[in-house]
Design a protein around this nucleic acid. Structure first.
Length: 290
DNA sequence: CACTTGACCTGTCCGC
DNA sequence: TGCGGACAGGTCAAGT
């Protein structure tokens, strides 16, 4: 679920909520979710203060005092939700459809107790991971070091072309999902990008001209910006840092999930394919295989 | 080497 | 209603 815009939305929300707070305790209900030893947790995490929050591609980075940082990857179903001690919205007897349910719940894998409240790492499918790494070594971390450029970085295009040209045999959809070629797109935004650029997802990279790649690159930026503007997407699992649900697909999806519905550009009925092993939505009129 | 598939997990939805 | 199978936003290891 969480692609770049969702992670960025969470980062912004969490920044206001937890910067300056101190970690008083950390509890791991599913040990695999947190890749660090008990000693590292008790010595480097507990007692540290939250300095700032950062993001790289789909990764959220929490910088701690003491020179360490938490790298958090939400994968498919991860959530980070802050519940302040004085936040009445979760009070019993006040269910609210626009928010997640009571916390913690059965999907809570890690609980951080901070001054003034708790930060819950929920993850239904247990794919998400949290790592601890020295702040100075983040760029060398295996999660970070081989990432490609981000579409929202205007200077990244040249790097993108260089990288993607090494994979002429790949379908453009597979290439957009490859984080080493371009970082931050997932299945939803890859489909939105190709719809905007009017490119068929099975098009081989080698058959795309430089100007078509340029077009795809800027379409990726547009798609991500649309997502950012609306606070991220929502299927089943996405919630913002304060527990509010996102709304991207309701309002802004042009491709993802729209099988059988009319194309927003030409009115043709949208179809669903399987490309690179993933459910893929296209307009068969606007996006033709050449 | 380049690229695709299966595994990791749990939940939901669909057809029988 | 119950049951099996397919599928779900990401990534890595293993396989072709």
């Amino acid at each position: 679920m969480p692609e770049l815009p969702e992670v960025e939305t969470i980062r912004r929300g969490l920044t206001d909520l937890i910067v300056g707070r101190r970690i008083l305790n950390m509890d791991c209900a599913w040990r695999k979710s947190f890749q660090a030893t008990d000693a590292e947790i008790s010595q480097l995490v507990v007692g540290a203060q939250v300095i700032s929050l950062d993001r790289r591609a789909k990764m959220l980075i929490i910088h701690l005092s003491g020179g360490n940082s938490l790298l958090i990857h939400l994968r498919m179903t991860g959530q980070l939700v802050w519940r302040g001690d004085d936040d009445a919205r979760w009070a019993a007897g006040h269910p609210n459809d626009s928010m997640v349910g009571d916390l913690p719940d059965r999907t809570t894998r890690v609980t951080f107790t901070l001054t003034g409240g708790k930060l819950y790492f929920n993850d239904q499918r247990k794919f998400g991971r949290i790592r601890l790494t020295p702040t100075v070594a983040i760029d060398a971390d295996p999660w970070v070091q081989s990432l490609g450029p981000e579409p929202l970085d205007a200077t990244g295009y040249v790097d993108f072309v260089q990288r993607i040209r090494h994979h002429g045999g790949m379908s453009i959809k597979a290439a957009l999902l490859d984080q080493q070629i371009v970082a931050g797109l997932g299945n939803i935004y890859a489909d939105e990008t190709l719809w905007l650029a009017q490119v068929h997802p099975e098009t081989r990279v080698r058959s795309l001209t430089d100007s078509e790649l340029q077009n795809i690159w800027s379409a990726a930026g547009q798609a991500l910006n649309l997502g950012l503007k609306s606070g991220g997407s929502t299927l089943k699992n996405y919630v913002q840092a304060d527990g509010t649900k996102g709304n991207y697909l309701d309002k802004f999806a042009n491709a993802y999930g729209r099988v059988g519905q009319p194309c927003h550009r030409c009115g043709t009925e949208m179809i669903k394919l399987k490309v690179a092993g993933r459910g893929t939505y296209i307009c068969p009129n606007c996006q033709r295989l050449v």
